[in-house]
Write a protein that binds this DNA or RNA. Structure first.
Lengths: 250, 250
DNA sequence: CACAACAAGATACTGCCACTATCCAGTAGC
DNA sequence: GCTACTGGATAGTGGCAGTATCTTGTTGTG
């Protein structure tokens, strides 16, 4: 098919398709002449994946390129899941430290906390893993915010995460074609993570609602009350920090 | 303290502090003269929270403003948790539909799937909840990608999400001051979500590693091999889509 | 009291990113 | 031959998150 039809079938503008091609996200069509190329179903498929990664997964073009590159490795090399997992961006960035010496101290103790967790869970992961690094800096930041996990809390979360991961792996099982597996893995990793986050929020919402219904008095119940009553919807409009003007006046 | 000291103590440039103030994220200091204002510890605290939300939580300035606005509601109104939860951005965007009629069909069946899940879990949530809407559009998108959840799979995830939410709520318990509770809630919701995601990835990494160690042959094991061997680190450099030139040549 | 150093606020500018529009040949098909 | 359309290159747009500059006013030290 020609680019205009590819555009029509996927809903992606022609200019964007060209852009993705330039960025290395989409292979070029099979050229039939100097100014004509033929696109196939695999291009439409790829475009859907690109849109899913960027909009649902929230990935940047560069991250999407890395992830798709890892998917393409599955064609040739034997390993892809690991590369994909490593290519997906970790939602934690390092912070500039306030002071150098307390920074080193925080780094060390957060690192120890992570190592302890890995040992307790019997998880094997190299210290070079971006997930280990990300977890370390996240714990460091929580420490700075004075909201660190209580002893054992992190392990409780880790046990649940392990169950989730088991489900994830089961979803990927049964696929023998490495390419299909790689694409499935991308979807599971990049898109189902937001889904789980939504489930978590829904569950929170439900539980807050229940505590409110049980009767007030408790701080959590009181603080969550807005979600239960009709105020929940009214609460949206005026979220502006009081007493402050803004660049963009409504 | 003056703005320069606030900057020094938090590591945030003066210009950025002014910018946050303009954007309504940070209250103005107490003015002592026409060109002089006094900042307090609460400003430093707020700046830390802002940086945590934007960098770790990945929130935009606008989203941060909404969330902080919800936090500030906790001072006056009784309800905050719900407003905060609703103010946090949902990591799912609606997609432009390919065709109008199949779009409506997908919307309806995804909506039914969500309703069914809510009923099965006995979760109470209004159809207007952004989480319900987000979940619906995420399922719709998965359907488009031909990667929908198998029957019961989503419920399995939901049960785990419920356990996670229970832990979340426990973490918030014990705080009676509504302001402290609101700030804790923001941290739990916005920052601990990435932490859980990291734990999940770590658990996946570990399990893939184990399956590889068990012996190859299985597709998941083979596809994950890269993560176990020394190739895991070598696999990072060449993630470029093959045969493609890019705007930004290395 | 003069004067350097700094503060506050307003405004303008910068760099990055994800597109989007324009332009230029070169077919395709009537 | 003529028009509609194509692929490719290049330049432009709009939003976002800061950053820099400018003006005016204040402090506090010699």
């Amino acid at each position: 098919m020609k680019i205009s039809e590819l555009s029509r079938r996927t809903g992606v503008p022609v200019a964007s398709i060209k852009y993705f091609r330039r960025q290395g996200l989409l292979p070029a069509g099979r050229a039939t002449a100097a100014t004509l190329a033929e696109y196939g179903e695999e291009h439409a498929e790829r475009l859907r994946l690109i849109k899913a990664l960027t909009t649902l997964g929230g990935l940047s073009i560069a991250a999407t390129r890395d992830v798709l590159g890892a998917v393409d490795q599955a064609h040739s090399s034997e390993g892809a899941l690991g590369a994909i997992s490593y290519a997906l961006p970790v939602p934690v960035a390092a912070q500039p430290a306030a002071g150098p010496e307390e920074e080193a101290e925080a780094e060390a103790s957060a690192g120890a906390e992570v190592a302890e967790l890995l040992a307790a869970m019997e998880w094997q992961a190299p210290g070079t893993s971006p997930h280990v690094k990300g977890l370390t800096s996240a714990l460091k930041e929580l420490r700075r915010l004075d909201a660190r996990y209580a002893p054992g809390e992190l392990a409780s979360y880790a046990r649940l995460a392990e169950s989730v991961a088991r489900l994830d792996l089961e979803r990927a099982a049964g696929l023998d074609d490495p390419v299909a597996l790689a694409e499935r893995a991308v979807i599971v990793l990049a898109i189902c993570a937001p889904v789980f986050e939504l489930l978590r929020r829904l569950a929170q919402e439900d539980q807050v609602r229940r505590r409110v219904a049980d009767g007030g008095g408790h701080a959590v119940a009181a603080a969550g009350a807005a979600v239960a009553g009709p105020a929940a919807l009214d609460a949206e409009p005026p979220p502006v920090c009081p007493g402050l003007n803004r660049d963009t006046p409504a």
